[in-house]
């Protein structure tokens, strides 16, 4: 099998998805089968093949450094599940770090 429960648990943590033990087992089974199928790609020798990131040739485009109006702040936060003083509220952060 191409996938273990532990890997699924690790990946769920990375993706910030709460996952219960039965769901882990089910995902391990289902996704494992998909990965088994995907292993088909190993038939191909791609050592000297360049990866495709952009499928059509794209030219570098950039915009002028000209200010465009921002949203009115009440619109910017209108969809917020919890808003205080025009800012989005989040619960306390236990893990100290981000990037």
């Amino acid at each position: 099998m191409s996938l273990t429960n532990k890997e699924v648990q690790h990946v769920a943590r990375l993706a910030r998805l709460a996952i219960l033990p039965p769901e882990i087992a089910e995902a391990t089974g289902t996704l494992g089968r998909v990965l088994d199928y995907i292993n088909l790609l190993n038939e191909l020798d791609t050592e000297h093949v360049l990866p495709t990131t952009h499928v059509v040739p794209l030219l570098t485009t950039w915009r002028e450094d000209r200010v465009e109006p921002s949203l009115p702040p009440q619109v910017a936060v209108q969809n917020g599940p919890e808003v205080l003083s025009q800012m989005f509220v989040v619960p306390k952060i236990l893990d100290g770090g981000a990037g």
Binding site: R63, E68, Q86
Partner: peptide, 16 residues
């Protein structure tokens, strides 16, 4: 994006 790059503004006023 075209939002102003300005320091010290009211919260979320320079957003799009």
């Amino acid at each position: 994006c075209g939002c102003a790059n300005a320091f010290g503004q009211e919260p979320n006023t320079e957003t799009c």
